[in-house]
Design a protein around this nucleic acid. Structure first.
Lengths: 340, 340
DNA sequence: AGATAATAATAAAACGTTTTCATTTGTTTT
DNA sequence: AAAACAAATGAAAACGTTTTATTATTATCT
């Protein structure tokens, strides 16, 4: 059907091995031979069959990007776009493709991975969003297959063996809440993401730790799971507001959740920051566009992707990238918090 | 290195053909043979080498999802996440993988495609976001390779041959602007996306057409390219506001751009909708969370992805999907527009 | 000029499957 | 019980490359 290496060889009057050499720009080729082959390739519009190349010993030029669907839902927001896009940028430089896999369950994900590894379909993986998925991580480690996690691996023993790129969610959240405490807030609410994600847990832990450090009690009536959608966060906030004590400030573990909080507060006739202060996390573009602009923690999402990809390619190419990369963040003070 | 079909055959005491038959659940297999092979597969933890399967005549179970990087930038917003995720959902049902390709230039994109096709790496493509990229579309048509475009193909002659899934951007935008006109607005501004994208052009054309229909002149000082980022839209709006005549309403061709408009208006001390009405397009989750909630056109982004994928799989499986699918939209009236 | 070494090109094996065709085994028919 | 047929299995070719010997050619040295 489509033109193959044999056709090229015939036209150029050489053996297929020679054509192969030209394709892979091997040394020891007479310039005129190379030219002839290149000419034939051009004439026939030949592109090597990547699958066959692969079987012949080479790896497929691609990496796998894995995520569970529910976690995208959780981040049903710009996060995912930005990360994947930045990964793709690095991939283009290294001339690799991305095989995207969003499994709905972890079992399916594991199977897919094994099939990709065994099929030599990918050279490595980037796991988006940290999860508590030990099985996959353990398996990949056991196989000594290159992979990078964007996020944190909770299991200490595993964590030492895994390449990760992340921000310090615990510290950053603590800082956010400490900022509220410095503004004299004492009844601080928290709308967080489902705790099955490491990020969510870390951020909630930061919230808790800030309270501990300042010897403040936590009122768990002011802490609610903001679920997956903006609307879930809105509902969670309503629940918090129905508590007998009203919070004077709310920490949303994601700007997008912050929007849900915004809505609930507006609806309850509470002004930000006059009645309730609000602080977010991630600093999406839109954070500065709310009314008032949202105080939040800037997370370099793009860098997260770029560096993860870079680390992966280093691993693949036998270099020694740093095992753990923690990126710097910054508290961006806008106008959604005030001193009381 | 890794366990292959031979190992399984040996352990099960059958030929590799038999193993292959079991894997592909061929008929005419003694139940006990099948069981023995399955047992061996389980014991050895065997997964077929997909690349080899492929070379052996089968296609790789994957489809390509294509987009240019700049267009993601343009949609540096939830759109991309939502579409890809919905595509992935369908892919999972059909047990196919996604090969994601964001090229930065169209030449690279074309080459990638050809290499994927020739390499039998994908069975079809979904092109995200309509562009004016004739070359790729023409080439795919010429090769009679299955593909679906989310968006519109402008070239009429080509359009008749291409499978597309889209909303009627022209009509919808016209409707949005007509709505403003019905509210007695006469000086309506427009902040649009770069016109190299078909969507952008269509939406701007809708804006223009609404004016024509109502015999209203267009003041091009009120029309500005809102570029790629929210901030670009903000700058564009500032430019519009610097015009001697001030618009009484603004049509933003994307909610996200609408946020830029919001910011500029706020900054200029103009209240929405009291001083200026604002209408968006797409109806992202966050649209209802702005203050005031944004009136906009609801675009079923998720369906766009789901249907595109469904059409592609139909094509691949030799069914006859509809050539053009236009999804219904709906004007969502919130509080960002008022009658004057 | 002849021997030796370096360079260039080829032939053939290997990669791990699927698939076609041939063979064996088992079942029915007469 | 032999013949005919169906079912189950196996052997080997094919897929399109890369790669490892191997051979042919050219250059270098004495």
């Amino acid at each position: 059907m489509s033109v193959n290496i044999k056709d090229v060889a015939k036209l150029a009057n050489v053996s297929i091995s020679t054509v192969s050499r030209v394709i892979n720009n091997a040394p020891n080729l007479k310039p005129e031979t190379r030219k002839a082959v290149e000419e034939a390739i051009r004439k026939l519009n030949y592109t090597p069959n990547r699958v066959a190349q692969n079987l012949g010993g080479k790896y497929f030029n691609s990496i796998g990007v894995l995520s569970t669907r529910s976690s995208n839902q959780a981040f049903g927001n710009p996060y995912f776009s930005i990360v994947v896009q930045s990964i793709s940028q690095v991939c283009e430089r290294y001339n690799h493709d991305i095989m995207l896999n969003f499994s709905s369950d972890e079992k399916g994900e594991l199977e897919k991975c094994l099939s990709m590894i065994n099929g030599k379909v990918v050279k490595g993986f980037i796991l988006l969003s940290s999860r508590l998925n030990h099985v996959l991580v353990e398996k990949l480690l056991e196989l000594d297959f290159p992979f990078v996690v964007i996020g944190k691996v909770l299991d200490e023993e595993l964590a030492n063996k895994v390449y990760t790129v992340d921000t310090d969610n615990f510290k950053d959240s603590k800082e956010a809440v400490n900022y509220l405490i410095r503004l004299n807030h004492r009844r601080i609410g928290c709308v967080h993401a489902p705790l099955k994600y490491v990020v969510s847990k870390e951020r909630l832990d930061g919230y808790i730790e800030a309270h501990k450090e300042n010897n403040l009690p936590i009122n768990y009536a002011l802490v609610a799971d903001g679920g997956y959608t903006v609307n879930d966060a809105y509902e969670a906030t309503k629940k918090i507001l129905s508590s007998p004590v009203r919070p004077t400030a709310i920490f949303a573990t994601d700007d997008i959740k912050g929007f849900g909080v915004f809505k609930a507060l507006n609806e309850a006739g509470l002004r930000i920051p006059d009645d309730v202060s609000l602080i977010g996390h991630n600093n999406y573009d839109i954070a500065e566009l709310t009314q008032p602009p949202l105080t939040t923690i800037d997370v370099p999402i793009q860098q997260l992707g770029t560096i993860a990809a870079q680390v992966l390619f280093d691993l693949i190419n036998g270099k020694q990238p740093p095992k753990r990369t923690i990126l710097e963040t910054k508290l961006i003070i806008r106008q959604s918090c005030r001193e009381i």
